[in-house]
Design a protein around this nucleic acid. Structure first.
Lengths: 178, 178
DNA sequence: TGATATATAGACCAATCGGTCTTTAAATAG
DNA sequence: CTATTTAAAGACCGATTGGTCTATATATCA
């Protein structure tokens, strides 16, 4: 997964994968089929990890606003320094392969839906707790938030400075939370 | 430019460029040097067009809120249907090459700075006109807006539906404008 | 120990990559 | 018209691509 993450699909060559998996060419093909299948597995794992993390951060039993803060703090972290420069496998894959690879399309699409649903859930709970700013509607705010964090990952590729990311995230949340 | 835009750098092969430029192999190399130089020229043109468009949309003499609306409307447009599926050369390049190509790094970085400066300018003028919501600070709001629109381009790759984009953009602006 | 299954290393494949160069045709100048 | 420049077509180059296959070494088991 790490190799695809760092380099992208096209830029990852077989030798890179062999070095990363410590497998021989034959064993790799026996275990995973071809490069494309292996990439799909890596993508699936990346998605599963991201969603699992969200399930913890945005847990129902938790204070929803705290959950959202933790969720955004995670993005700040992943956007800082070396982490930021590494980027996001999902965003990179979306830009590189979406619209040209049906398998990828399905995964990216459903990931964004799943992510949006989780954020919308947290926002709904925040609203019920009276913690949302006036006029904020959970479902559209969730879409906004998803766009915002994915955009963070894009600009974080070139300017991964933690302090600015954190301030931006705080200012963002201030617009939706009270 | 169009070829790199549609396929990305690595996925664009020489034959694609020959077809697109209607040039022979020799002429292309005589005119542009190598693939990398040609790509840089395409990227520069893309950036110049984007900034020129912003200069019109966010013109000083215009009502700043109208300008911001027009600016965001442009993103809605570029994110809908086939346009959306084509994606954004800048975002794709940032994810594919940033951190591995110094020439690209410089261009992407300065583009985001230029874009943010223009948005911040419009927001400042809006603030002076009393059109900003309470507690909105132009410079941090500009960073938020840049992240938001770039994130739009990412999720727009898989779900480029105009109505939702428009509603999301409207709801977003509602948080900052009055 | 000897027989068998497993996985390694790496030769090998056709196709394609970015890039160069030669040959030929077309346009221009006199 | 001929002479000269310009550009197109495409052969060609070594390197690399994703993928297959064989020979060898290493376990495993009786």
């Amino acid at each position: 997964m790490g190799v695809f993450w760092s380099r992208g699909y096209h830029a990852t060559a077989l030798p890179d994968l062999l070095r990363a998996t410590k497998l021989s060419r034959g064993s790799l093909y026996a275990a995973f089929g071809d490069k494309h299948s292996l990439f799909l597995r890596a993508l699936d794992r990346y998605i599963a990890i991201a969603l699992a993390r969200m399930d913890i951060e945005l847990d129902h039993r938790r204070e929803p606003v705290d959950g959202l803060r933790a969720y955004l703090a995670g993005y700040v972290d992943r956007n800082s320094g070396a982490n930021g420069r590494r980027g996001c496998l999902l965003v990179a894959t979306a830009m590189e392969l979406a619209g040209r690879d049906a398998d990828v399309d399905r995964r990216i699409g459903s990931f964004f839906r799943d992510m949006e649903a989780r954020v919308a859930g947290a926002l709904s709970r925040a609203k019920a707790a009276g913690r949302l700013a006036d006029g904020v509607e959970p479902s559209s705010a969730a879409r906004i938030l998803v766009c915002f964090v994915e955009g963070l990952r894009v600009v974080g590729k070139t300017a991964p400075t933690r302090i600015i990311s954190q301030a931006t995230v705080d200012a963002f949340l201030d617009r939706f939370i009270r």
